[in-house]
């Protein structure tokens, strides 16, 4: 396949270079006063190509959408994600018409007003009215977007109310794997720092801290209950990573020396999502989204969204930190 592709390309190149040499010869012949002059025929051709390009560009856009639109992320699996998706759709509804209209104007003008020696261009240097209109219009549209966007943003970034039912999970990134730690029955995470990292204790949990005893540490995958707010704390042991959970429309950097936070409410269990996507192998993923070294491209952890009962069952089958030591 590749070989065919490359040979076709190379062939095309050779042909076009040959063509060019011919053109160059011709232009050398006509070398005289007005070589730089673009003939009316040539100019007309370019004008028509403008329209051809417009059609190509829009069709290419549509073709991509039809072919690949279905691979975009499935419906949001988190509560705030639904809000993000709505905001996204509103934004698209604004952007795409502007994209289409301005492009039609651009290429239509280019076609329509191509050079004609019997016509004069108009002398139209400014118009306060027009300029005011197209300062105000985008300002209005943007005001709506900003208000709508910030409303969403503030809701998303508000931490979980610690009084209410929630799950507290700490996610730690390191080259090139992830770990997750649950606060356990006391609802408190034990102290942790890179200085305590030793052997299996890759998260650096301080074993002298009582709060750490019932902490639960997992690798490879972690579970969360559906419809319960999950408060995440992120850390990193080495370089910056980023915990990206696309299906939940969630992302937060993991920065060494700093704790960062994010929270969301999962609303669709893994089992349900398998049905929705008609894919038995579907799994939610957490992947690294900040360049972090050679194997950055393969740093992942599965996320399983369970019903509350299944989650409890899974959690109680996990070893507590004190049992490990």
């Amino acid at each position: 396949m590749m070989i065919i592709l490359v040979s076709v390309t190379v062939l095309l190149i050779v042909i076009s270079v040959a063509q060019i040499l011919k053109i160059a010869e011709l232009s050398a012949v006509s070398r005289g006063e007005k070589v730089y002059h673009i003939s009316e025929k040539e100019n007309k051709l370019q004008a028509i190509l403008m329209l051809v390009f417009l059609v190509f560009y829009f069709s290419f856009f549509a073709w991509q959408y039809l072919k690949w639109g279905k691979y975009m992320l499935p419906i949001s699996a988190s509560e705030h994600g639904v809000g993000i998706d709505n905001l996204m759709n509103v934004t698209w509804a604004l952007i795409i018409p502007v994209f289409i209209i301005t492009h039609i104007l651009l290429f239509w003008f280019a076609f329509k007003y191509s050079f004609n020696k019997n016509r004069k261009a108009i002398f139209f240097a400014h118009s306060n009215k027009l300029e005011l209109i197209w300062t105000l219009l985008p300002s209005l549209a943007l005001t709506v977007l900003i208000l709508y966007g910030l409303n969403n943003w503030n809701k998303i970034m508000t931490p979980v109310n610690p009084e209410k039912e929630h799950v507290l999970i700490e996610v730690v990134g390191q080259q090139f794997s992830w770990g997750a730690r649950y606060a356990g029955a006391d609802g408190k995470l034990g102290r942790a720092n890179v200085n305590f990292i030793e052997g299996a204790n890759f998260m650096g949990v301080d074993s002298t801290d009582k709060n750490a005893n019932d902490d639960i540490i997992v690798k490879g995958e972690f579970h969360v209950p559906v419809n319960v707010p999950v408060q995440f704390i992120f850390r990193s042991n080495d370089v910056i990573h980023s915990a990206y959970m696309p299906h939940f429309r969630a992302q937060m950097n993991c920065v060494p020396g700093i704790k960062t936070h994010f929270n969301f409410v999962p609303i669709i269990t893994t089992a349900e999502m398998k049905k929705i996507t008609k894919n038995d192998k579907f799994d939610y993923l957490l992947l690294c989204n900040k360049i972090c070294g050679a194997a950055h491209y393969n740093m992942q952890m599965n996320i399983i969204v369970d019903t509350k009962e299944d989650y409890q069952k899974w959690l109680s089958s996990q070893k507590q930190f004190s049992q490990n030591n």
Binding site: L106, Y113, F115, K120, F124, L130, T135, S139
Partner: peptide
């Protein structure tokens, strides 16, 4: 986005009713 939009509209208006040579 506002000054950027102004620039785009001004480009478009400059082309409008021009007499364009396609170099």
């Amino acid at each position: 986005a506002i000054p950027s939009a102004v620039k785009v509209f001004n480009y478009l208006t400059t082309l409008w009713k021009g007499n364009i040579k396609f170099s």
